[in-house]
Design a protein around this nucleic acid. Structure first.
Lengths: 359, 359
DNA sequence: ACCGGCGAAGTTAGCGCTAACACTAGCGCC
DNA sequence: GGCGCTAGTGTTAGCGCTAACTTCGCCGGT
């Protein structure tokens, strides 16, 4: 047993008299500190630090002993102190528009799978598709001095852009591909996706193709552009076939939109919903109302969510590489954080058309 | 126009010569510090600190001026330094089993809505239903010295329990209700939910009621217990009607389970799926195979996900108050973090039976 | 005049850790 | 036998902020 006896306690246990500078162990938090571990192990604090952070610099046996002592004392390194001293927070801020949308959750998974093994923690912020909220979140997260930042899309407030420019922190934009050569981005072309699906519908012989959009999401609008261009190329574009609503997408919104379509508000033989949620809602509503899909109305979605393979009929859609987007964005960010410069500032991961029975 | 001119830059912008101890502004990170703001505003650092954190202690005009100066310099407080000095990280660790399961995402939303306005940041960890992984995550998050901890369920490793006991950090367990009087918990009775649904099926006249479970989730097993007890009370329990698989739940797993049931592996006239994902998958598969629900087979789920109202037929299920669980857990944690003791250590938020067409 | 009290600022001393350098053996080498 | 070299450890000096005092000035009451 080593000598555990601390200096005798101060006369009054409440007020810490400013007496001797050397405290026995454990600060106000009651947690063991690195100095406590060092003392117990008979080494200096820096050696304990190295045993944890730079193991190759410490003799193996000593390291083992230090880790044992630390474990025995329930020592946990203090990340705040480490971040302050080393100017590295081992933290990455991730801003996404939504967490109920599985698209972004899968992106998060991809990010996590790359960054977590390297010791980075994610600070996840949900902007609810609002650039202003995004700015607020960014400001909050900057307090953590994140070593890197992952943003969704390129729809940011001026203040956000200013912050990012003033900061030296590496930043990667996910989902959309940016043209700005100073920005790093990983994603796929939403425009191309819209174009792709519309061409498919044209090939299938549909001539009165509608588009159903929610306005919140800028990616939706890029798909709309693709749709528009494809129809213009075919000489079939008619703005009256575009149905746009301000609400966030949901199954019930898709159902409601289908009602408006079937009830004659939009004259079309095929409807391209800007995402699978809406399309699924529409399909469900078709079942309820007895609308035959695709005979009476063809329905297409976007994203290829899990349930889209299971609806009746199964939904034609475009698969987006969202896990990969997260994965590759994180990999690119990692490279930037480690001072490398990635081969490509703009990584297009492509899209995959998924033809099923609904068209 | 106020004077915006900063001190002239150091002669050599690259290497900061180790000359005078007084640095002009901005440390190695290049970011403005509190001292920089203080100097510019002509006050001491502590006043800047107070202007941000304890506004009531600073004269209003001075405070306004300080905030303006800070804004102009792009100053962002350093959370690591603040945490170190104040022993408060303004951080809460949240451990959930899954992020693809919307149940937990909605819980997160509830947590966020309470904690975010109070300035707390969430550290979100996903354990993938593994107590060992949960322990690893907890250890990682303890480095952040979180001011509070939110855990899911009560299925933890011994080491996790030890950590929590050694720590003084307030902890609230979500989802399940714990009997331990030393623990705080907010949730609903999974057992009661299983019992409730099974009673409903009995009332409807079903006599050969099966249960489909995934093993990963302890909450699932509690529902199974409720099911078992209800059937035992009715003298109708038969273990051969319990279908248990090890995989994580998904639509396709539900579909696969339905196949096994319909193909004769389980003799039943009603099937209680342990969650809506499985039940939805089963319903989809019924449509494909032409199994009439509920005439040939009744199907029930658990949780009441959004899509369950839209399937054909609509799914009978039990609604769980997951947003509320998150909300109330966070509220309880907040009380604990602020030193109050909540009225109730164990908050049961109840369940709601949702009868629809599938039974 | 004097005092107490209060509101509003400043001073001092760390929080727990790590960068950067300093040191000490022990080794091989000409 | 002194040199350089490396591996392994220690010393020093902060990182940027805030708790806990201390100080200052002003007010009103007696």
């Amino acid at each position: 047993m080593t000598n555990r006896r601390p200096d005798p306690p101060a006369p009054s246990p409440s007020a810490a008299s400013p007496g001797k500078p050397r405290k026995p162990r454990s600060s106000r938090t009651g947690r063991a500190t690195m100095a406590d571990v060092a003392e117990r192990a008979g080494v200096s604090a820096i050696t304990v630090s190295r045993a944890f952070k730079r193991p190759e610099l410490v003799a193996p046996d000593l390291r083992t002993r230090i880790l044992e002592v630390a474990q025995g004392m329930g020592y946990v390194p203090n990340q705040a102190a480490s971040a302050l001293a080393s100017a590295r927070s081992m933290t990455v801020a991730v801003l996404i528009p939504s967490m109920t949308n599985t698209v972004f959750v899968e992106t998060l998974a991809g990010i996590h799978d790359v960054l977590h093994p390297r010791g980075y923690q994610l600070l996840i912020g949900v902007s609810h598709y609002s650039p202003v909220e995004e700015e607020r979140l960014l400001r909050a997260y900057l307090q953590f001095q994140p070593d890197g930042i992952l943003l969704t899309g390129n729809d940011h407030t001026d203040a956000t852009q200013t912050y990012l420019a003033a900061l030296r922190s590496p930043t990667v934009h996910m989902m959309e591909l940016l043209d700005d050569p100073d920005c790093y981005s990983v994603g796929c072309s939403q425009f191309e996706g819209g174009h792709l699906m519309t061409r498919h519908l044209l090939e299938r012989g549909y001539r009165r193709i509608g588009f159903a959009a929610v306005q919140l999401d800028p990616r939706t609008l890029a798909r709309l552009d693709g749709y528009r261009q494809a129809l213009r190329e075919a000489g079939l574009y008619d703005p009256r076939r575009v149905l746009q609503v301000p609400e966030p997408s949901s199954l019930s919104l898709g159902a409601a939109m289908l009602d408006r379509i079937v009830d004659g508000e939009v004259d079309c033989d095929a409807m391209f919903f800007c995402n699978d949620d809406l399309a699924q809602g529409a399909l469900f509503q078709c079942q309820r109302r007895g609308v035959r899909v695709p005979e009476q109305l063809a329905i297409a979605g976007f994203n290829d969510l899990a349930a889209s393979a299971w609806t009746t009929p199964a939904l034609t859609t475009v698969a987006t590489p969202r896990y990969e987007i997260g994965h590759e964005s994180a990999a690119m960010l990692l490279a930037l954080m480690e001072g490398h410069s990635p081969a490509n500032r703009r990584l297009d991961l492509g899209l995959r058309f998924v033809g099923r029975d609904s068209t």
